[in-house]
């Protein structure tokens, strides 16, 4: 296996998934709308007090991003599993973990990146500005790929299992806890004037760790699901 053919394989999968997403734009738009709606519900529930909204803002936006990612997880493998494409993908002459990286990358571009791009607007809704707003975007940029990586494990584990939508939430949400803590923590500490660097570097560490481990776990789960 040469390195370039590995990148070709990843590129091929990402291109194909993006093309598919272009054909079904409403799918990708849905998780973004979900994020906006959830984020807008909190001020309605908690009250419009700016001081309160500033305090809960980072946590609310991070939880909303986490749920948006969770809802889109079923798209990573399920369609390919049902129409037999996943079977073909397992049999390509590349390690399965490489394929998983491609699928997760595509998932992040379709449902993670829009969240990152939209976050400054939502941050303004919660009275964040200046440095904390920048830290919010940066934390989501570092954190959402990790969410996609970890989520892929869950998505692969529940392939073809009854009640998979709820089950994947129960499996994946506990695994999301560290990312949530570091992500929301980065914004909070930046607001407190301590600076978000420490939390951001921990988020980076989570991303690296998930990049190393999650593809293998996901690959194992896919093989088990296809047996």
């Amino acid at each position: 296996m040469s390195g370039s053919s590995m990148w070709d394989a990843i590129g091929g999968i990402v291109r194909r998934d993006l093309l598919l997403a272009m054909r079904r734009r409403s799918d990708a738009a849905m998780s973004v709308f979900f994020l906006v709606i959830v984020a807008s519900l909190f001020p309605l529930g908690v009250g419009p007090e700016p001081a309160v909204l500033r305090i809960i803002g980072p946590g609310v936006l991070w939880v909303a991003a986490l749920l948006a990612c969770l809802l889109s997880l079923s798209r990573v493998f399920t369609a390919d599993y049902l129409d037999g494409v996943l079977e073909q993908m397992v049999l390509i002459p590349q390690p399965l973990a490489v394929l998983v990286v491609g699928k997760v990358l595509a998932h992040w571009v379709i449902s993670g990146l829009p969240v990152v791009l939209l976050s400054p607007l939502l941050g303004l809704q919660f009275g964040l500005d200046g440095e904390p707003l920048g830290v919010l975007v940066l934390s989501l940029l570092l954190g959402t790929p990790t969410l996609s990586m970890i989520g892929a494990i869950g998505a692969a584990l529940v392939l073809g299992v009854r009640g998979s939508g709820l089950l994947v939430a129960l499996l994946v949400l506990p695994l999301y806890v560290p990312v949530l803590i570091f992500g929301a923590g980065a914004v909070t500490s930046s607001m407190a004037g301590i600076g978000g660097e420490a939390n951001l570097s921990l988020l980076g560490a989570c991303l690296v760790l998930s990049l190393f481990l999650a593809p293998w776990a996901t690959a194992a789960a896919i093989r088990i699901a296809l047996e």
Partner: peptide, 24 residues
């Protein structure tokens, strides 16, 4: 085999969670 994979993923996660919660 599926629950084994999840158990193994969880065992990596437990110390990270402990550390992160303490940090938090």
């Amino acid at each position: 085999r599926s629950s084994a994979v999840f158990a193994l993923v969880g065992v990596v996660n437990v110390p990270i969670i402990y550390f992160s919660v303490q940090w938090w």
